[in-house]
Nucleic acid binder design. Structure first.
Lengths: 198, 198
DNA sequence: TGACTTCTACCTACTAGTAAGTAATAATCG
DNA sequence: CGATTATTACTTACTAGTAGGTAGAAGTCA
């Protein structure tokens, strides 16, 4: 009884994939174990075997999302030097999410923040903190190299960047309008002296 | 049998007040008729008497919120001439919401968009459209008078402004940090050549 | 074999929503 | 005017359905 799934096996991954899609489209309070089970053609009990409680599922959802995101940021750092390019690649990450008709998982959860179990709240803040740290360092480095215009605190500007991107996704989704998101992202970049294309 | 409540009587207003608070804090999928009934010390059936279905309640919630907001904008127009001041007053509207530990009702509903009944979706877009129209006209007029810096399309900038404000609220709430919202709002104003204080 | 995974079958709590009834108030009318 | 009739604003008691969650049997496979 102690063992359970370690969350790395194929079944757990498929459940996380399905739950992630549902959470990004409908929110944490907008889907149920029954929804996941139906999409995967298994029983609810089987889903509970891998993720005993919804709080467990939610925490693992955020953790995996965070890891994937961190991996993408690491890849940007490993393949791109120009800070303006890094910012463009960062925005492309968000673009891909909304292009797949999804909201950022953590932006979605942020809306439901006060209804979430505490471990999810902690994991959520960690995600935003990591984004802020990465962006702030890119901004700071860009200011040093003169490739990015940052007049104020890099940290505060990093936060504001996350805010615009999350907000633009949120509203654009209500209009089913990807262009709306892209326009906001373009503005945000322009303020940093960065064009959409290099 | 046709009559029911007209939604203008004291009971309806109290229900809307309570539902609004719950919706702004927990989302439309995050509260139930039982929650409202409990807070008002009445029965669920009594709430259903005034708002037969949750979709009805949701639509009326957005309609009232929209009206109140439109009234606030009309008051700004009636009492302030300087466009920079108008923008500061606009942001103060958001500030007051988050200061009361709430998310913008429509920002919250935007997150849950795909789970909402269609009439709510329509009402939601109307709210954002009205914001955009008002802001765009202030921006355009500010550009003309030279009191606001708007380099690009006033309409697109208006959208972006709504996006930042909604996103900043969303994320700031996860940190319970009003200052975080204010910082983002300050940045947004600064980009328009508008200071926080006149 | 035994660990792992999934199933059947179930539970309790809660969801939105309804049916039927009841005080109190307001409207109508002989 | 008083008697009747509606209407308003609820109530109690209930529905069907769904939520998250569990015990234990059955199947799967190295």
């Amino acid at each position: 009884m102690k063992s359970r799934s370690n969350g790395q096996n194929p079944s757990s991954q498929r459940i996380l994939d399905t739950a992630e899609q549902l959470a990004q489209r409908r929110g944490f309070n907008g889907f149920s174990y029954a929804d996941i089970a139906e999409q995967l053609a298994v029983t609810k009990a089987s889903v509970h075997y891998h993720f005993p409680s919804k709080a467990d599922l939610g925490v693992r959802l955020i953790a995996r999302y965070h890891e994937t995101f961190a991996g993408a940021l690491a890849k940007i750092d490993a393949t791109v030097d120009d800070e303006a390019d890094k910012l463009r690649r960062y925005i492309a990450l968000y673009d891909e999410v909304i292009a797949h008709d999804r909201m950022c998982l953590c932006g979605m959860f942020a809306a439901e923040y006060s209804t979430l179990p505490e471990p999810m709240q902690v994991a959520l803040r960690a995600f935003f903190d990591a984004n802020e740290v990465w962006l702030a360092s890119v901004l700071e480095s860009g200011r040093q190299s003169g490739r990015v215009i940052v007049r104020e605190s890099a940290r505060a500007r990093a936060r504001m960047l996350v805010d615009v991107l999350e907000g633009a996704m949120l509203v654009a989704r209500a209009y089913g309008d990807l262009a709306r998101f892209r326009s906001a992202a373009e503005f945000a970049l322009a303020e940093l002296g960065v064009g959409v294309r290099a």
